[in-house]
Each structure stands twice: as structure tokens, then as C-alpha cells.
Nucleic acid binder design. Sequence first.
DNA 1: TTTCCATCGCGTAACGTTTCGAAATCTGCG
DNA 2: CGCAGATTTCGAAACGTTACGCGATGGAAA
Lengths: 336, 336
Amino acid sequence: MHKKTPTMQDVARLAEVSIATVSAVINKTAVVSAKRSERVRKAMEALDYHPDHIARSLKTGKTQTVGIILPDVTNPFYPEVITGAEEVAHANQYSVILCNTNEDPVQELQQLNILFGHRVDGVLIGCTDPAISLDGLTRRRFPIVCFDRIPHGFQGDSVTTDNFHGAYEATRHLISLGHEEIALLVGRTELSTHLARLEGHRKAMIESRLPILGEYSFSGGMEVKTGHEIGRHLLEARNRPSAIFCTNNKLLLGFVTAMRESGVHCPKTISVVGYDDFAWTENFYPRLTVVAQPARELGRRAMQQLMKRIKGDISTPTQITLEPELRVRDSTGPRR
Amino acid sequence: MHKKTPTMQDVARLAEVSIATVSAVINKTAVVSAKRSERVRKAMEALDYHPDHIARSLKTGKTQTVGIILPDVTNPFYPEVITGAEEVAHANQYSVILCNTNEDPVQELQQLNILFGHRVDGVLIGCTDPAISLDGLTRRRFPIVCFDRIPHGFQGDSVTTDNFHGAYEATRHLISLGHEEIALLVGRTELSTHLARLEGHRKAMIESRLPILGEYSFSGGMEVKTGHEIGRHLLEARNRPSAIFCTNNKLLLGFVTAMRESGVHCPKTISVVGYDDFAWTENFYPRLTVVAQPARELGRRAMQQLMKRIKGDISTPTQITLEPELRVRDSTGPRR
DNA sequence: TTTCCATCGCGTAACGTTTCGAAATCTGCG
DNA sequence: CGCAGATTTCGAAACGTTACGCGATGGAAA
């Protein structure tokens, strides 16, 4: 048999004070004499009392909880973002509800409604559906900060990395090594991130007056398998490129496997640049040259912005852009 | 200017019914005539009304929310677990609050208290502190299911993989290839998982009457750097082993790098078995032989068990053990 | 027409907090 | 000792729901 969890009522009774006094002690919202506040503290201790956030939230309208919606926890980029975001959330006494959409727009909408029902104080969203409309929500005074992928036409707060510039640098790097036939393996170009990378790549190519050949451009799914198929096809073609820039890490994985299967040497025969840096990229063989995004910092900044909004900041929306960094390792080398 | 979010009050007024009727319609908790319930539905639609989970929770004592506490989202094993757990939770209309402890026991306790304050209906925990005491909580009728790492002496529900057997199979595999000097690189042996792996390895060695040499056994941190250092030291030793079994993926990463730096060929000179299977292990060079844990299934099973408890199941605690699977690839070969 | 039941709708008391204004108590000074 | 003013404490009304039990309605049986 178990007694139910204690309430302020119980604490008040034991400490022989009023409920209001207990509340004052807990929230330091009024001065309470040393003697009484000590009695209250003792009573809380004795009963193992923990305030009920639910009841508090109902009264205050604040839940001290934020939501994070993202496409896929299984993509190691996101856990890094989460870590950064959680860090600042916890520092501000906020809890985080995590929602996975599994890259499914329908789930994304559901999750948003669930979070709304939970009356979270705000949400961070890495959009699954590039065409999602968040305006209705933001207008309801439901603070939202977008990170990584920004939906089309979104006017609110956002934090991204400079995908255009990252891709530009990656391609520049390949060009500087003497490569001219550079293939591009890009993810879903409906996504703001991948579109920007596509454009960054193109700018570098055009600047150097290099041809952007149709047979070197692939966009589509973002699965290992896709990368593998494209790799097989591309590597056996007569006019195979001498370098490839791949904007998605799963695609890259498949491509690298195809490369190994074809006996093509990297970087001697073909140079490879990937996107995103993880624990294993440096231990891959060959060590991968990649564009690294400051994922954790991105999470931090996004959450900081959200915290500001929650605290009532109503300045005009900010679009923060962080700089990615090209990390040159062994998978890229001079053209032969 | 914005109107505040609508309440049942508003819906009732617009539909010209009582609040109780609105509630009945929403929860299907009583029969309401077609005409009225249609009016209510229309009104909800018109006002864009969403029930307030907070208020509901206060009344019902159920939050439809569970917590997941784990040591490190950044270790790709956990995102898989999360995915499985979330899947089941959502199917049961539960939301998930995610808590990272960053491998810090102090944070773990804090998180537990926060979750308790949020009045979550239960929690899933992959323990950071092997000595944490969960008894007090479970006795408070706060359903807890442990997964992966089980704290010392824990008597409640748990879901793990058979670490002992996984390690046993891994070492058996090496022995069957003719290896005799097998080194073990094990993580923190205070953790139930790594201790079991250590013991599984030993059993296989002893069964085959092979010596367990002190200079081949390393336990300690679980960082890439540590694996790297041990690798350097071990590979340059006079009597270096012909095979190594590594129970932690970060350690393994460091070790593999050291191997490459020393010019030691795998699997010709040394065979390697790792733990946990990820997208990249198969694309590594060499393709890694590993013990794969059914991480997603583990998450599913753990959440299923938690759901049962939340729904009032009070049968005696179950300890579920899932079988890992040895995936033989290219990093292990016959001894030369 | 009256009586009886089934059906459906509603009023209202919680749930555990916060908060505000009023009541109680204390302080110091004339 | 009395009183004003400052300080500390308290009572009670919300917050948005759910759920219990009573009252109203209406059709069928008598």
C-alpha cells in the first residue's frame, strides 16, 4: 500500500503554515521569516515533496518545456544538434520533448499538434516538409525557431550553416587541385540545404568556366543504396569524372563502397569530398575530406534564440548563419 | 493583437451546449446526439481549438508522456534505441521527453527529478551510474524500465542484449580462425554491459584452454583517444596479439587508426572484432566484423514493457534478453 | 391521459498550484 | 502605552479540464 504523492497541502500542514507560505518558500516570491522557511524546508524534505509542474503550468501558462522536431535521430548530424540545444535548454531550466518525423510530413504536422497540445513554450524545428507553413503557428504566439532546413518562404527566426558557401569551398578545393570533370551527388533539392549546396557548387564551377555536365549531376533520395547505384553507374562510364562532391553522408557511404568494389583508388584516380564530419570520417580509409558543420553550435544558437523569444523578446526575426569548415584530409588529391 | 487560445468554454458557447457535452464529444465518454456532436465538432474546427493536455493531466493524473534517460545521444547506438522506443510510444499516443546525462551521474539524478516533477507516466533509463538506486522510485509507483545498462542489484523490469553471449561468440569466432593470442579491449567494467562482455570473452578463452594474458587486457575510458593509445602501445610490443576483440565502438575507432598508422594489415596481420553495427561499419575499410545488437528492437521492447506497467500491469518484473548477432565481414581472417 | 424507463444533457466539485489583496503581527517612536 | 507604518502571513479565487450524479425529455405501455 502506498500513500499518494504529497502536495503543498501536506507540506503546509506539517510545517504548520499556510499553503501560500509554502509557495513563497519554493519560488522565493516573497520574504518568509527564517524560522518558518526552515520549517517548510524540513517538511518538504521529510515528505520527499516535489512540486507538481503540471499544476504549476496550468496556473502560470508556462510549461518550462520546449519541443524539438527533426527528421531523423538516426542521422548523426541531429544528435549533435540535440546535444547543443539540450545544453542551453537545461541551463535555462527547460526540458526537451523530442519528436522524430522519420522524414514524413504527415508525422511532422501531428507532432506539431501534439506539442501544441502539451502547451510547450516553444519549438525548434528542422523541417521535414520544405513546404510546411509555420505562419499560422507563429502568429498564435507560439515561438518557433527553424534550424538546418528552412521551409520555403519562412520569415521567422532561423539558424543554419552557410550551405552555399560550404559547397562553394568544397568545389573550389577540388578545382584548385586541378580537377575539371567534377561530379555532384546532391540530396533532395527541395530541401533548402541541398539546394544551396547545389548552387554553391555551380557558382564555383561557373566562376572557373568549367562545364556542368548533366551526366555528372544526380539528385534524388538520400539513402546509402542510392549512392551505391549511382557510384556503380558513374564509375563504369567511359567519361568518368576525376572528382566527386557529395552533399549527403549516406549517399557518400554508398558511393565509397561502389568505388572500392570497382577497384578505383581514392584519391589517386578519383577525389572525394563529403558533407558533415563525424567520429568515423577521420578513421575511414581513406580519411575523408569533408565540409564540417558546427552542428552542436547550431543547436545551441537555435535554442538560445528560442529562449529569448520565450522570455518575451519581440524584435524582428533573425536569420543566423554559421560558417562551415572544409577539412582537407586524404580523400582528395591532385588530378593526374 | 492576438486572442488567447480558445478553451472548452469558448467551444461550448459557440456550439450552444454545456462544457460537459464538449468534453463528452472529445473523449467519447458518453453518448451525445448526432446533431449536437456535429455542432461541437464544427465549433472546435472554427475556433481551431486544441485540448489543453496540461489541464487534462492535472485532472486525470496521467500526462501521456514518458521520459527516456540515456548517457549520450551522440553514441549512435542510442538513437537507434530511441527510434524504436518512440515508435511504440507514439503508437500508444505517448510523447517522449528525452534526457541526456552526458555520462554524468549527477545529471542523471537531476533528470530523474525533473521527469518526476513533470509527472511523466513512466521512464525508460539506460543507466549512467551503475550504482544508482532506483528502488525508491519504483516503490513510489513510478514505473521504470531499464535498458542496455542495468544498475547493480536492480530488481525491476529490464531489457538488454545478451552481452555475455555476444562476446563469447566473438571470441569463439577468433579462436575458430586459429587465433590464440587474443587481446581484449574492454570499456568501463563497472558497467553491466562491459562486465558481461569481459566475462563472455573469458569463458571462451578458458574453454579453449587459452591463456588470458594481463598485457592483452585493457579496460578504462571509452574514448577514441584511449583506443588509439592502447593500439600504439600494443602493436609495437614484441609479443603482439594476432587478434583483438574490442567491446566499444569508440575505442575500436582509435585502435583501427593506430593499426593503420603502424602499417599493420588487417586482417592479414591482425584480426579485429568490434561491438555494435552502424551504417558505416560496412563501408569501413576493411569492412568490420562486429557483434550487432538489435538496438531498435531493444527500444521497442523496453517501451512495450513500460506501456504495460503504465496501463496497470502489476505482474512480477521481467528481465528480457535479446540475442545479439555476430556479423562476419572482412576484418577477421585466419591466423597466419 | 398517466406512469415508467431509457436516454441524453448539464451543473459542479475537484485536481495542485500561483497570486493578489486583506489580515495579522511586529517595530519603533512619541 | 498607543499608534502608524512596515513587514510577514494567510484566505480564496482562478487556471482548463474530467466525471459524478441528478434533472429533463420523450416514447411506449397501461
